[in-house]
Write a protein that binds this DNA or RNA. Sequence first.
DNA 1: CTCCAGGGAGCTA
DNA 2: TAGCTCCATGGA
Length: 275
Amino acid sequence: MEILYKNGRTLIKSPADFDPDKIFDCGQCFRWEKTDGLWRGVAGGRVLTVRQCGDDVLLDCSQRDLEEFWHDYFDMGRDYAAVREKVSLGDYMRKAAAFGRGIRILRQEPWEALCTFIISQCSNIPRIKGVVSRLCGLLGEEIEDNTYSFPGPEVIAPLGVCELAPLRAGYRAQYILDAARAVCDGSLDLDALRSGGADEAERALLTLNGIGKKVAGCVMLFGLGKTEAFPIDTWMKKALKEHFEPGFDPAVFGENAGIAQQYIFYHARWGGGVQ
DNA sequence: CTCCAGGGAGCTA
DNA sequence: TAGCTCCATGGA
């Protein structure tokens, strides 16, 4: 990936695997918004804008910011062309990987991934974004005009469900509180889970009230860097039934199972000419 | 009005 | 294990 720096900005030259529309709109994150062709988002308490310029991608961050934070966030150390090749097992996977070319798995903060995917359960993207936006506006810190950081678990843990009512998160409010308290009292050590094994991470996440295999899988994949995680939701069930043998084991994708999952999801969600 | 949405828990058989 | 039902909210 060829990267140039000038005037405090970062230019990625003709990347084959960095498509902002796909990265931010493939359902893995809920805090990036596009206005007038410009993606704007918050991560790690920082604001970034991302723009597609012809074949290039322009980030409004310095070389220092990129190397300190965004390089890791965008998983820029991974060769996605090689991943696409490896997961292209059979005609369907080759098609799905080609269709999803440009997707990258964002390495989001563990707590934010945990919290947002609790909110995501049995909901839809616009509504999830609404709840998350209200959560940040209510409890986050204002880092720029009308732009808020994601509130840490220590801010949420002392509250009660009534104080989360403005989020209109429904029955998920209690799950958020339980998770925040587990992180704060040390019974759930997200940093340890990030550096530990996938099985151990899943076991720990499943002990939380309101967290099942699907949400745990998303937290592992999007927040804990476990690219072997393969979360299965309704779209994935549909795709698996349609394009794979019964009893298919995603473990054949190995450490790339999560990325394969994202290609499948993206194709199932947007590839069939549906909406 | 009904139905369902990137689920999960608890119950039943 | 598989199949229900309810959970709170909002959009179609």
